[in-house]
């Protein structure tokens, strides 16, 4: 389905910030779509990973409102397949950190139900809090 995306003026600072935080040369992305094709979470995403790369490249800060970066679980599937050897896991991490560093958590750690609290393994709790709280 075709999607019309209205672009805002390019925010070069945003591109630079994500490039620096991720350590990835985002402008090298050639939009082949391999990352999106293999992503285990892509069906849940509002904007797919290769589109995120393009939007960041164009300095579109609106990607911060997408849920894509939060769905990325750093499984590194795209990372090992990217023909440009770009690590998209790092780009997602950079985007998450931009928000989390503003002291805004993505989840409420108190929302875990009592039943789940007693069931969940520590590994899940620590992992989740590292990715979703700042």
């Amino acid at each position: 389905m075709a999607q019309i995306i209205k672009l805002k003026d390019k925010n070069t600072d945003f591109l630079e910030k994500i490039t620096e935080l991720s350590g990835e040369q985002i402008t090298l992305c050639e939009q082949c779509g391999t990352c999106s094709a293999g992503c285990p979470f892509v069906s849940e995403m509002d904007i797919n990973p290769s589109q995120i790369m393009r939007l960041v490249m164009l300095g579109q800060e609106s990607v911060m409102d997408s849920k894509t970066m939060w769905l990325c679980a750093s499984c590194f599937t795209c990372t090992v397949r990217c023909p440009r050897k770009l690590d998209l896991s790092k780009v997602s991490e950079a985007l998450r950190q931009v928000k989390l560093r503003g002291a805004i958590d993505e989840i409420d750690i108190k929302e875990i139900s009592d039943e789940e609290a007693l069931k969940l393994p520590t590994i899940a709790v620590v992992g989740s809090f590292r990715k979703f709280t700042g």
């Binding site: 599937t77 875990i112 899940a124 992992g127 989740s128």
Partner: peptide, 14 residues
């Protein structure tokens, strides 16, 4: 293929 990892805490549907 990823099992969903830590999403099990707050997004068990995935």
């Amino acid at each position: 293929r990823c099992c969903g990892s830590y999403h099990t805490v707050n997004n068990v549907e995935i």
